[in-house]
Amino acid sequence: MEDKEERIETSLVAIVIDATPAKKFASQPLDGSSMMNRIFDSLIAFGNAHLMQASHNKLAIIACNSKSTKFLYPSMDGNSRSYQNRPGQYDMFAKVDSDVRHGLGELILNDLTDNDSTKSDSLLGGAMARALCYIHRVQRELSLSHQLKPRVLVVSGSCDSALQYMTFMNVFFTAQKENVVIDCCMMDTDSGLLQQGCDITGGQYLHIPSVAGLLEYLLWVFLPSPSCRSKIVLPPPTKVDYRAACFCHHKLVDIGWVCSVCLSIFCKFSIMCTTCNTEFKLNRPAIVPAKSKKRARIE
């Protein structure tokens, strides 16, 4: 059956879990447990489902909060920890289960012992960058007979952070260059930045209406590999808002003024660029008609 000429496709999914909203979800009771448990269990189930699809498939799970990022699976602290599998359970699944539970719990508890930091943003950008690095490493280590189909799945429930804008953008464009698809499953909140990232890399962005059914959304939308998604009826792509924010008031602008020297964006015209102190010399009287200025349409 197997054609010798054809390279074996190895699908690698790197799941990036945002652990910052854990506390929020822990407070929501659900069927005698909590929403947090439901979410984490769903993620483990999804990871195992991916591994089950083909024996070559690979999985990486990275979690992050506002302080640190951590590789949950494959775990970085060696094989020291023992895990118990239920009778008849595939060994690898049990390992994923145990590693994730342990690692994620530790990460959240560490965060908890420190000062409460839920207010600051989660380091999603950094975690995604680590995922890309891991993908790159796997790609290099893979034998020639295998062909890696990597993708990143971001599962998050926190808002965009303006401070990590550059990190995000770097990650997106790197992923685009490396042919890594970025998928995103958002709970509770919407993220404009991740929408852009998914759009750039050709991934699927989904904001799920109910967190309780997370596993089904994951299995339905994100389990199929990007190559077969075109054959499946999936939620249509969201309209991505690519507007840029002006530097002066941080407003999203459709049409703004762009400094011709430093490319700063402003929503109102001023005689001097406040970023690079360039004076705009206009040979006009003081009342400035709209025509004379440099206009730029920002997409």
Binding site: C159, D160, S161, H250
Partner: peptide, 9 residues
């Protein structure tokens, strides 16, 4: 330059 659009969504 480093700051992105605020989260208004």
């Amino acid at each position: 330059y480093l700051n992105g659009p605020p989260t208004t969504v």
